[in-house]
């Protein structure tokens, strides 16, 4: 995952609501919507693909709503950049990727490669493994 570039214009919830109601914000070319796990789900009803980026903030790594929010945004057809920012664990990154996020803002000392290695070691263990007819719990890390 790359670090998030904040150079895009972040629009406010008020602007987004106005935008959803048909009020164009013509002067803004690059649009970023910032959501938290507590944001009303109705905010996702607008024309998401008008946005360049959606950022979801995580205040507590235990709060798994961000995974469902990411998944929901993708299921609604959003194809732009989806970023997660905040309190995260390195071993959550593969799951975040699976749920549709493509960027995360992380602390420098987080070892993300390890989490991806672990995920790959459990390749057959991941949901979707039934085609193999068996599971494999004893794969070792390279």
């Amino acid at each position: 995952m790359d670090n998030f570039d904040f150079s895009d214009r972040i629009i406010t919830i008020i602007e987004w609501n106005a935008f959803n109601q048909g009020n164009e914000i013509n002067e803004i070319q690059a649009r970023v919507l910032v959501l938290s796990a507590d944001s009303p789900t109705g905010l996702l009803n607008g024309p998401l693909n008008k946005l360049n980026r959606i950022v979801v903030t995580s205040v507590d790594f235990n709060d798994g709503r961000i995974f469902s929010i990411g998944r929901q945004i993708r299921l609604l057809g959003y194809t732009g950049s989806l970023t997660v920012v905040g309190d995260l664990l390195p071993d959550q990154f593969p799951a975040l990727l699976s749920c549709g996020f493509d960027k995360a803002v992380i602390l420098e000392n987080f070892n993300t490669s390890q989490s991806l290695e672990i995920d790959q070691a459990f390749d057959l263990f991941e949901a979707g493994d039934s085609g193999t007819g068996k599971i494999n719990f004893n794969q070792r890390l390279p």
Binding site: F61, D63, G64, F67, A95, L97, C99, E126, A127
Partner: peptide, 8 residues
């Protein structure tokens, strides 16, 4: 098992 969305 290890469902990405439902681990937390």
């Amino acid at each position: 098992t290890l469902h990405p969305e439902f681990l937390y």
